[in-house]
Simulated assay, not measured.
Amino acid sequence: MGEAERARIMAKTARFAPPAAVLADGRREIIGLSREELTDALAAIGEKPFRTKQVWHWVYHQGVTDFRRMSSLARPLQEKLAERFVIGRPEASTVQTSSDETRKFLFRFRDGQEAETVYIPDRREDRGAVCISSQVGCTLSCRFCHTGTQALVRNLGAAEIVGQFMAARDSYGEWPSPRGETPRLLSTIVLMGMGEPLYNYDNVAKAMRIIMDGEGIALSRRRITLSTSGVVPMMDRCGAELGINLAVSLHAVRDELRDEIVPLNRKYPIRELIEACRRYPAASNARRITFEYIMLRGVNDSEAEARELVRLISGIPAKVNLIPFNPWPGSDYQPSTREQLAKFAQIVMDAGFASPIRMPRGRDILAACGQLRTESRRERPAA
């Protein structure tokens, strides 16, 4: 599997492209532009390249949304920028906070489509993870996942992906204070929200490069994790180009079962997926691949399956996240019992792999793993 397969994947998802980041009045969205694109856009209105660094700092380091707050720019330039550009955010149409302080945002984008984003705090360290969506809906139809019951509507653009993190920062006042202090509650990003990130790779990669830029948000690649169900050719590209952490939604150790609950397995079976994990260049003892394994009672949680899991991942710098199934309306599965969870975890741990049982967060607001879904629909083409 090489460039031809990667090209086929990109062509297949191109019809779900996001709308252009241009408003009805002709102004262009600055969020989501790469440094090179911003330089070109500023040059088109007669500004020198050094302006890129100034604008980038105000937008991504200070988090301003009003050109008039860019105090290092002269007022005429502020006005010229405001006439031609906009610094937007997705609109939070609803915000829910769980009893465990998990917060779920339903973000509405300029075309009215919506996606969910979740902030999961870790109060022991005053830090937390922002779970970001990469698509509206999903194309994978995993049987245990609520998001998978919503057909793919479209990909999210780089502006919409970056914008989720920036809007979450707005919500928590996470931009530097006048005294230069920067709180770090939103310390990590997990691309584990709605959608398969590797089926929207170009937009995801562009967004992550913006977020990792050292003169802006400056989040380290070590603090970004991309979760995939196993789009093998794009895993190789992601590892080579971004080098961010990898999480793999495995959920079964036999092809016949994984074919059923993760249909993507029919195209990229377990053997190919595990080989791609062994090749992943960012994997090391310090940066282990995370294997996500949702525990379904009587389906994939036997001791025999735990032993086969250990055999499959032997030799890979890895940890295994065991995820109790989070029920959602209409689901067919039940979570494994505590006793079976403990037995499974012990077998994996005895083999030398960390095997934490992930405590469900945000269940009361349907913000837990596999529970995200919106009412967005893909418009039918005119007859």
Rank of each mutant, 00 (worst) to 15 (best):
A7C: 13
P263M: 12
V204T: 04
L264D: 02
I224N: 01
V118M: 09
R288T: 14
I244P: 06
A286M: 05
E114W: 07
E125M: 10
I211A: 04
I347N: 05
D236S: 15
R271C: 03
C277F: 08
R123K: 11
P263E: 09
G173C: 06
G63M: 09
L296S: 08
V310F: 07
Q78M: 09
E125S: 15
F109A: 02
I261Y: 15
F50K: 08
S99C: 11
Y119F: 15
R27N: 15
L250Y: 02
E29H: 07
V118T: 02
I217M: 07
E196M: 06
D202C: 06
P49T: 07
R89K: 10
R361L: 00
A7Q: 11
Q334D: 14
E260I: 14
L198I: 11
A318Y: 06
K48D: 09
L77H: 06
S133N: 04
V59K: 04
P317S: 09
W175Q: 01
N321R: 07
M194W: 00
R380Q: 15
T337A: 06
I323R: 09
D202I: 14
V86L: 09
G2M: 07
E241T: 04
L198T: 05
D126K: 10
S229G: 12
L23K: 09
N300A: 12
R237G: 10
S134T: 10
P329F: 01
R28I: 01
S302D: 14
Q334S: 14
D213C: 01
L264T: 02
P49R: 12
A318S: 08
M208S: 07
P327E: 03
P18T: 11
G180Q: 00
A21Q: 13
F67R: 11
A20S: 12
K343D: 10
G298L: 02
A74L: 09
S227C: 04
L219Y: 02
C145A: 04
A345M: 13
I120E: 09
T337W: 05
N326P: 11
L140C: 10
L264E: 04
L257E: 10
Y268M: 05
A286Y: 02
